[in-house]
Design a protein around this nucleic acid. Sequence first.
DNA 1: ACGTATCGAGCGAACGCTCGCTCGAAAAAA
DNA 2: TTTTTTCGAGCGAGCGTTCGCTCGATACGT
Lengths: 232, 232
Amino acid sequence: MALDTTDLTTETLCRYMLERQRGTIIVQKQDVALRKLNVIIAAALELSNSKGFQAMSLRDLSRETGLSMGGLYAYFDSKTTLLNMILMEVTEAVKRVLSDPPEEVRQDPAARLDWLIEAHIRMTELMQPWFTFAFMEAKNFPQAERRIAVESEALTESYFVAAIEDGIARGVFRPDVPALLPALIKPLLQEWYVKRAKYKRRDVSMEAYIATVQDIVRRICLPQADPIPHGR
Amino acid sequence: MALDTTDLTTETLCRYMLERQRGTIIVQKQDVALRKLNVIIAAALELSNSKGFQAMSLRDLSRETGLSMGGLYAYFDSKTTLLNMILMEVTEAVKRVLSDPPEEVRQDPAARLDWLIEAHIRMTELMQPWFTFAFMEAKNFPQAERRIAVESEALTESYFVAAIEDGIARGVFRPDVPALLPALIKPLLQEWYVKRAKYKRRDVSMEAYIATVQDIVRRICLPQADPIPHGR
DNA sequence: ACGTATCGAGCGAACGCTCGCTCGAAAAAA
DNA sequence: TTTTTTCGAGCGAGCGTTCGCTCGATACGT
């Protein structure tokens, strides 16, 4: 599981963001800008995820970051821009991570599926506030932003489509794998970060969750190995 | 599939609501109250689901219903109460529908699971705006209301837990059915009404969706029958 | 049948407040 | 001094909520 965890910290993501948003971020000094951007984004994610983006006022954000109202506007030119900045980093991160599976996994469809599932869940765990934000807020986005979210989701699904089709073509997977399966894996992956509190309460570890989803998908795709003998 | 569809129309749900909220609804005349409540709830669901409950102002609602600001307050005493009224009808409807499976299904665990899946999806289809509201808005509810939503979800899950445990106890299901499976069925059911637009676009009928979820769950629970022989 | 009293659904201006956002000035850095 | 960064009072719009009021329908006394 070679997932570059340092690449998904809020700090690193803010570095990407700063670079990408040179146009809108007024502050010139790199180190100052990066430090404050970090504080702003972290606070924005926390406030947003606890009360909703739209219910988070910029005064809340000002209080939480220690920056003044005007100070905040050196980092974005509108509240919607702030939303876009966060969204963009999430979708870019998904592309970065899921688009290149490790070499050893490409020849084995089952392993490739396992890897996709594990990588996706581990990524959402590392970037949990980001994904919660992107997922929870997506419904109320302006149309343009919602299309981005939909397309990003379609991209994720396409990775699963490819892996499953490959498995069937190689004769490793059952030929009657449901056509809807790739679409249905997505909500299983989202469940982990959306209902995180619930699984924490039940002492379900991320590893156990990953293993279960992998197990379920394997049971659906593979001709049954029936690993544990059972009576009757 | 004996699902009483007339019981789940907005009109009928408003009748229940009117009865339950006698305390808060000021309007005395039954028929007037019922007619207007219908208009108010329908508009509230539509506005809420397109821009979010928070973002729906009572002025929006006033414009959409043709009632004045003051007029609206004859039907609820605060915006939060309006939210609660809708939430409550959803959770009560779930109880009504899922708590009594038809007799012929109780002795057959696989059929019982199939029934639960079909009943739940058909119900969410009939009450789509209600479920979208309850699910999408739940994240940003005040704490008390969020607890109701969480408990309602736990209740739904418990129906699946019971059915699966019964199947294992009877030796019909594999003993190694993942413990998390009941929790993971829920997001598969939600997927249908949350991403409704996506499946419409892809020409996936509700029947096909139901059949797929049933198929998937069966593959996970049953010792593999391997109905279609497949090559290698 | 007719006039009068009563009812109550509905109205909408107004209140206190918070919102996203601006901008001139102070502070800090260079 | 000049440039860059930060500040925070203030703007107009819009929020949820209230309340004195209207006015057609109904009930009742004669």
